[in-house]
Nucleic acid binder design. Structure first.
Lengths: 165, 165
DNA sequence: AAAGATTGAAAGATCAATCTTG
DNA sequence: CAAGATTGATCTTTCAATCTTT
């Protein structure tokens, strides 16, 4: 609020920020375009199914699924309802322990992920992975992790990665 | 489409991509949260007004404004109509030369940007600029520019920067 | 009452169709 | 008819309120 104390961006910081702002807006949009055109699903819907497909039982609790797709529970709930209507997954309210709901990928959903993944990965490679130097990609990973930590320090954002390093 | 030839991501590429995917989803969301809570506007609306505020005449043609905010003309048109309703800008159909429409920031719109900028910049610093090493920020700028070039090679994405380097 | 999740209404984005001017 | 822009319909997201189970 104290306007006079604002630390404005330097020229280099500003140019880095402008490029980053364009990146975070355009990259998801470009991936959405490919997925929508080729497979009729959104990036968000693909992420939901991709995350489920990597589980042994193709199942995840709604709140965990929300965390892994960076979405609110409400947004996820609406999206999962649509995907359930399309036959790609099923919801089940676990009766045993608690008020939890689990989403499970159906065979059709798994098949959809299998059909969709190659084109998606190709586009990710084309736009990002193969377009930048390996060292820059590594820097990007660091930046991502640091920013996520700034946004939410409590976020256990190394779930699978912790063991892998 | 040839599934067998898909070049899947390596372990390092995959971990970089996962961090990046989370980054591009969560960073704009976090900035939206700050702007919405403190000033009642979205990141997109702020960008529109900020871009206009940097012009000498606070004016830009709709299609140029769309390019500079990474948005479709349709999305921009709807958003500009709302901002016009709020008194932050005005539209004028240039009668002289062509079918162009220009958007001009009003005094109220300029004041809104002035009031909003400090908090926004503070958050950008906190989440990104001050959170990463200068070399990583520089790498991020390179990545951004390369990805934007992959998405649209014809995009003149160095408008202001060309002269500045 | 709190955690986990869903719902309906309101706001925003996308898509296709349209309008206008050159 | 093409370029620049807008519109209306539809789909998605967000926000606040609600429901259920512990």
């Amino acid at each position: 609020m104290r306007d006079s104390e604002t630390k404005w961006l330097t020229r280099d910081e500003r140019s880095a920020w402008l490029a980053t702002a364009a990146l975070v807006v355009r990259l998801p949009a470009a991936l959405d375009t490919q997925l929508q055109a080729d497979e009729g699903i959104s990036f968000f819907e693909y992420m939901i199914m991709a995350v489920l497909s990597e589980r042994d039982d193709r199942t995840l609790q709604m709140s965990d699924l929300a965390a892994q797709t960076s979405s609110s529970l409400s947004r996820l709930s609406h999206a999962v309802k649509r995907l359930e209507g399309a036959g790609y997954l099923q919801r089940e309210r676990l009766p045993g322990s608690g008020r939890r709901t689990c989403a499970t990928l159906t065979d059709a959903g798994f098949a959809k992920v299998v059909a969709t993944a190659p084109g998606h990965v190709r586009r990710v490679r084309e736009l990002l992975i193969d377009a930048v130097a390996p060292a820059d990609l590594e820097a990007l990973r660091r930046v991502g992790e640091q920013v996520l930590h700034q946004i939410d320090p409590d976020d256990p954002w190394l779930l699978d990665e912790v063991s892998g390093s």
